[in-house]
Nucleic acid binder design. Structure first.
Lengths: 145, 145
DNA sequence: TCAATCTTGATGCATACGCATCGATCTGAT
DNA sequence: ATCAGATCGATGCGTATGCATCAAGATTGA
């Protein structure tokens, strides 16, 4: 097992970091310009909508790849704005259930047009569908195990 | 010009963000475990070494894709640890020159084995060289224009 | 020449993040 | 039943980031 990554791997790593930072900053800037909350809020609310029901913070932690204390504080902020509601968890007295509110659902709907346009502008416009599919497939490998 | 990115583009976007965050967190964790400074320090020092001479902060800003105030404070921290030195800029009285010190060169050398192993572990081990080259090429498109 | 504007870099302030730790609860072994 | 250890979520504290602004020097144009 080589400890030296190949030049190809090092180049892929360097561009992964640069490209993601650039694209993320550009998309966040578009959201901000439109007076919308940051992307992290969308991600969290989207996971809740996908789950079609309340989620435990620890589940959000896994799905969002966030540290525990960051989930705790993100939920604080979302709750303060009324986009989610915390409820006690019956099965586990330590835990709680985080639930999407109507206002949260509405925020998802309001953010998507701007978010969608930003994804197109900063990613879609630079890749064909075929290339995007290949990129998605390769990145998927980095997410596994 | 479509405002709707295709499903392939949206998937590529989502995985770009997730994969880069996961890989970055893993590599940072390895560096920290080895008692080494964060990756941003390495990046900055590396750009200075590549430049083979002092750089203006505004040049670092462009190469590192960082905001101006973040460069200013990153250089503060690097200077406080003796890894770089600020010098007045002759040609432009507003500006300054940031120069890599011997200690900074040494830090680059000391960090690389751990960094290299981390890149291999978290990226190289999951991609063949061919795949890494394809990934690098696709990501390059996101960095252009 | 000199005033208006732009560029460079620093900084005060508010917010977000990383780290360690805590209290509360659950789990499992005896 | 009980107790050690693990898990869940919150929080205090230090540090890093984003935002707005500022001072100083460069540049432009009349």
């Amino acid at each position: 097992m080589p400890i030296h990554p190949s030049d190809e791997v090092v180049a892929a790593w360097a561009r992964l970091i640069k490209a993601s930072r650039l694209a993320l900053a550009a998309v966040e800037a578009d959201l901000k310009k439109a007076g919308l909350p940051p992307l992290g809020w969308y991600d969290a609310l989207l996971e809740l909508r996908r789950a079609a029901g309340p989620l435990r913070p620890v589940e959000l932690e896994g799905r969002l790849l966030l540290a525990q204390h960051n989930v705790s504080r993100l939920v604080d902020r979302l709750e303060a704005q009324g986009y989610v509601a915390r409820q006690p968890c019956e099965e586990d007295g330590r835990g709680q259930l985080v639930e999407l509110t109507d206002s949260g659902r509405d925020l998802l709907r309001r953010m998507w047009p701007t978010y969608r346009a930003a994804i197109h502008r900063h990613v879609g416009a630079k890749l064909g569908d075929e290339q995007a599919a290949t990129l998605a497939r390769l990145l998927q490998r980095l997410l596994q195990s």
